[in-house]
């Protein structure tokens, strides 16, 4: 096995650092910790990590700023930790380049799953992307522009396909309303979330077994959507 993957945790709460150091260490990660933003940035520059876990409420500079400054020179996946009541901070962090978020308090399984998704995406961005994505009975071929459900082809409109393709290419990650709208519709529609909602409803009708309780096209309230491949 190669060298252990390096995770940098930036959080000002000693108990969280202690818990993550123990749990992630046990999972064979190399963990370094910082309790201030500047310290975290310095650590990230000295020993480039494979994943950064970043708390948004830091004592010196805001987590949002850490996020933006990291993105100036690094594509390392960033997982943001935030309190429940700060929806807008979460969205702001995602729009500034964070890859995903977790709401405190969180279960460790959830955290490990997010780390896995983040690592997979950063590995993919270095190698040619797979064009075939599978989720339960769904098979999405990004190159051939076809979608099959249980083997049968599902007919999608051009916009529906663009939307599904963007979500599926980022499987497992949360995508904000803004980012989906600007990728799928382009800038002019970027504030018309209702477009997105209507198209998501159509996609669910065509792809989900029970559109009212979706398994793959999940809503992240107040933030955006997430395409789940393993559920």
């Amino acid at each position: 096995m190669s060298a252990p993957l390096h995770i940098l945790v930036i959080d000002d709460e000693p108990q969280i650092l202690r818990a993550l150091r123990t749990i992630l260490g046990e999972k064979k990660f190399r963990v370094s910790t910082a309790s201030r933003g500047e310290e975290g940035l310095a650590l990230a520059a000295a020993q480039p990590p494979d994943v950064v876990i970043l708390d948004l409420g830091l004592p010196d500079i805001s987590g949002l700023e850490v996020c933006a400054r990291l993105r100036e020179w690094s594509q390392v996946p960033i997982l943001v930790l935030s309190a429940r009541e700060n929806e807008t901070d979460k969205v702001a962090a995602l729009d500034r380049g964070a890859d995903d978020y977790l709401t405190k308090p969180f279960g460790i399984e959830e955290l490990l799953a997010r780390i896995r998704v983040a690592l997979r995406h950063s590995a993919q961005s270095q190698s040619p992307k797979s064009t075939l994505i599978t989720a339960g009975p769904l098979q999405i071929d990004l190159a051939a522009h076809t979608v099959r459900r249980g083997g049968a082809e599902v007919r999608l409109t051009a916009t529906e396909f663009r939307l599904l393709a963007y979500l599926a290419a980022n499987a497992g990650r949360v995508l904000t309303h803004q980012s989906i709208l600007s990728h799928v519709w382009g800038a002019p529609q970027a504030d018309q979330v209702e477009y997105l909602r209507v198209y998501m409803r159509q996609l669910r009708k065509k792809l989900e077994e029970d559109p009212g309780q979706p398994n793959y096209l999940l809503t992240e309230p107040g933030v955006g959507y997430r395409f789940m491949t393993d559920s």
Partner: peptide, 24 residues
């Protein structure tokens, strides 16, 4: 937040059926 009058809904046009999903 409700008591302090600080509850300001961030309104958007939503599909009610979508909202019910999450809690279920």
């Amino acid at each position: 937040r409700i008591e302090a009058g600080a509850l300001r809904p961030q309104r958007q046009w939503n599909i009610l059926a979508d909202i019910v999903q999450g809690p279920l």
